[in-house]
Simulated assay, not measured.
Amino acid sequence: MPHFNSTQIQLASRPEGWPTHENFQTVQATHGDLLEGQVRVRNEFISVDPYMRGRMDDVRSYVAPYALGETITGGAIGRVIESAAHDVPVGAVVLHQHGWADAVQADAGTFTVVPEVPGLPLSLRLHILGMTGLTAYVGLTTIAGLREGDTVFVSGAAGAVGTAVGQIAKLLGAKRVIGSAGSDEKVALLTQKYGYDAAFNYKDGDIRGQLAQAAPDGIDVYFDNVGGDHLEAALAVFNDGGRAALCGAISSYNATEPSPGPDNMANIITRALTLQGFTLASYLHLAPEFSEKMTAWFAAGRIAYDETIVDGFENTVDAFLDMMRGANTGKMLVRV
């Protein structure tokens, strides 16, 4: 069996503040003969995500940091082109976490075979039908305990997770859903396409005032993708017994100095609030439940989505940097 070549993007140095091209390196790898139980996969789509920035720092987190000189791992989907594994045949579509490479050779057990549905883009498995959608579902149901009639606020609402959160909240009975985004165009998209009842542009300033105006009766649930001043604004308008699902803190990912905490933390006590951070690894057992619901919603035409797709593996770093600066609407992906 001939040797197999792939192109991979590695972390070359740890960013200080905003990442730059100099923090990455592109390398060529030659793989040996395909061993029993291994497969070769040609990637079709690669995911770039905010959490990857945190893994570029050598600090304690919920998952080990990226090692220097090793490939950036993360979500990707591709097709098996050679197989020495009886249960993963040539032509199968597979999800995996081998990340930023145009092709992969690895044990079949590190891939998940997914059905190929006619008319359904493979890319959706990397967001609304995959981990992104599951993150939204888990945060709303298991972490925040969404109840029918709740008012929900979502920060970073025009991103991949945020667009899923708003729709799922309404489908599960939320009375009012409010979102923040970083441009007037995204604000319009939230209300016109994704079912948000109100939205505001956080770049206009006075986030606390804008949220108070959008939520005159307060909020019951906060789904936090941003942290910082957005969390402070949510604490100001929470109703008694409010719940927050803390999913991300993108406002501080590139900070070089510690960010000051909210000035109204006492509201957690006086309003009996519950703030819980979460990562998805502890809730993967909910994937079948989510998949059943999302598949039904999708089939009924009740789910909208956006993708920002960058063509060419060589543009992966650009896609990541653009995503970190908010250039995407919905999920940012690289089409290999």
Rank of each mutant, 00 (worst) to 15 (best):
P288D: 08
S259W: 07
I207M: 13
C247L: 11
N315I: 04
A299W: 10
I309K: 01
F278K: 10
Y305V: 00
E307C: 02
A266G: 12
N264Y: 05
V221M: 10
A266S: 13
Q213K: 15
A287S: 04
I268T: 11
Q210I: 06
A299Y: 09
P258Y: 04
F238Q: 05
I309T: 05
R243L: 03
A300F: 00
F290C: 00
L280V: 00
A287P: 00
T274Q: 09
A214R: 02
K293L: 13
Y283G: 00
M294R: 11
I309A: 04
G261M: 10
N315S: 12
Y283P: 01
P216D: 07
A255G: 12
G242V: 02
L235G: 02
G241R: 08
P216F: 05
I309H: 01
A245L: 12
A244F: 11
H285L: 05
F320A: 02
D311G: 09
T256H: 07
F320W: 03
H230V: 01
L246F: 15
E292N: 09
A281I: 14
A304Q: 14
G228K: 02
A272G: 14
F313T: 06
D306I: 03
F313W: 03
A300S: 02
T316S: 14
G209P: 10
S252R: 08
G218F: 08
I268W: 03
N315L: 09
A287Q: 11
A304G: 04
T270Y: 15
L235H: 12
D217W: 15
F278Q: 07
